[in-house]
Design a protein around this nucleic acid. Sequence first.
DNA 1: GACCTGCTGCGGCCTG
Length: 818
Amino acid sequence: MEDSRLKPALDYFDSKGWTPFPFQIDTWKDFLDGKSGLLNAPTGSGKTFALWFPVLLEYIAQYPDSWQKPRENGIQIIWVTPLRALAQDIQLAMEEVCQVLGLPWKVAVRNGDTDTKTRAAMKRRPPECLITTPETLHILISQKDHRELFQSLKAVIVDEWHELVGNKRGVQVQLALEYIQAICPTVFRRWAISATIGNLKDAAQTLLGKNLPIHIVKAKIEKEIVIHSVFPEEIEKYPWAGHLGIRMLDQVIEIIEKGKTVLLFTNTRSQTEIWYQKILEVRPDWAGWIAMHHGSLDMSVRSWVENALHEGLLKLVVCTSSLDLGVDFRPVDRVIQVGSPKGVSRFVQRAGRAGHKPGLPSEIFFVPTHALELIEAAALRNAIESQEMEHQFTPELPYDVLIQFLVTLAVGEGFEPDFIFPLVKRTSSFSQLNDQEIQWIMDFITKGGASLGNYEDFLKVNLDEDGKYRVKSKKIAMKHRLSMGTIVSDVSLKVKFKNGSFLGTVEEYFISKMKIGDRFFFAGRSLELLQVKGMDVFVKVSEKKTTNVVSWMGARMSLSSMLSHKIREIFRDYNQGIYESIEVQKILPLLDLQRKLSIVPDEHTFLIESLQTRDGFHLFFYPFEGRMMHELMSALVAYRISQSFPVTLNMAMNDYGFEILSDSYLDIEELLEEDLFSLQNIEQDILHCVNESEMSRRKFREIASIAGLVFQGYPGKPTSFKHIQANSSLLFQVFEQYDPENLLLKQARQEALTQQMEQEMFVKALRKLNELKIEIKRPSQFTPFSFPIMVDRLNRTNISSESVEDKITKILAQMEMD
DNA sequence: GACCTGCTGCGGCCTG
């Protein structure tokens, strides 16, 4: 290893006045030695350069007089980023470095935004460095002559790996890496860049697959995070439940005033709209200085905000996690988080948007929206101090992604099973794939499996005489290309002005509640509904104000198990008379009241509260295991109760516990004797609950889309949501009836369950509950713990048991309709 | 007495 090869790079850093971080030197050496690995570094630490330099240095070493040489032939390096918005920045950085070092490399971006001309040019003459997305990588693989593209590949670098490793986009990356390696004549290096997560080793393993040794390079930079909790003036009047936090408006305004450029994170899009509106009401003089950013606003609005922020033109941006990643916002000096961030990693990520300079601490102001969130503040601080971050696991055996990948290959060159499946099994996600499953999948894509053989739309792939499997039908091939990727989004309506300019999207159900002439607040404006035409909603600006703010039915974030665990620790300390953190001290009156009315359970106690109101008979259980776990637990408890007693039950839950509400009296002591939480028959009972749950149907809809069973529609002309829903639920029922062994069905159940919690975790949690001392309390009124759960009941779910016959009749009726 | 929500991410066709 000659260090002289690093010299030009170091000189360049010097000339720019940048400090080269120690980890970069390590990475450069490893890279030049041909190693692969994972680079763990905080955002804004110059990681782009850390991995870009060695590539160029190696090139210099090969061609000492490189600037006199012609360009290389073919792609040398592929840089994968999960966000298109990052591509431009990376390209600029790389081009700059090339120019300074006098290298004739071409750096190009290829993703969905790339225009047809550039695409064609790139095909004729590929750039040395290609910046792309996981999806586009698969698009490239689906092209007929893709092999040539990868013949000269030296390295693949995956940016923001922590964003991908835990989901199906990450599985796509794994498949692409193994496939490209299999057709590339030399071993290329793979490097990923990741923020800190709890299980970096697993993340590295997922990237490197089975054949490469795990190798992690950690940045030797520590980022200090300072949390300021914002307390209400009168803690006694602080709400016990609620999420908006508008009550804290005055204090938040003060924090904004003292900052120069501020990011205010909220948890939902409608919350963003509301805060934006309220802040402007109090400070109309800030008009033009404040902006809003969330996922349903039009791209042009969003990029305007991003640019203005970058140039320091804005005082405040109210946003959702849409600004978690992305452009490097150097001018931001303050970050405010309204409401629980629900997880440690997310909180750290947001805090990191402020003080974006090495060595400077990141300050974040946490604004709790209800009383118990103050405890979460203490829990967050605790977790950050002890450096505990959430873990991320790659999906296991996501058959839908594999099916899509196989059809992708069949659309292009075609594939031979003997070549493909061994490489598929080298990925972490499919290392457990067995021959039976392979057989099933091949059957499914060639013959439609056990139940779809009569529909030619599902007979996608044929075996050709040369032994390769290909897609023959042009229509099927086209539809497949149109629906590649693993992100399944709901259909939404476009909000437009009469002149056609586009504000963003709202959901059908929101508009369906309104009539022509009604007003609603969206994209920071009061709008009047003029007309709904197809998928377009026409509006005009209204002079009158409105409190009808747009809302969306998004996913519900659950408290991470990391945080729930920390909260239990804080209760334990409280019971022992220890309350060190300022947040817990502030909230003492509430905890004391809880203790007076009921108890604050310690780690050896399982608290159940029983209470009667005019709504009925309530049972509140407090396992403190996070919302997802409680959703499944309440379903299980309700199911078991309904086995013994013919009652109608309503369930509600939050991150701390769950409620069972009945219209008739339930004797909790008697119920507990029936072994409500017993481990007997647990697997069947869980399976039953999961099957009945809306969750597996919803999961199946996603899976059916990814596996290509449901067509999402042509660009700009999406198939309506109802249609997709009908198709996928029809398929769900057909599989259940005629093809119960269907792997996609199995996957849907599995995903629903894993989403709730690993089955093992669930059983472990139940076992834990069984070991706790059960304490039944009969408080005279709602307690500080039960009140927020009662509030959550608005989104309650009923257990219904539709008879099997009814289902079959429905299926038949629908079949005839089609 | 207290409350009234639900994140993010990408990709693509045909026709004249």
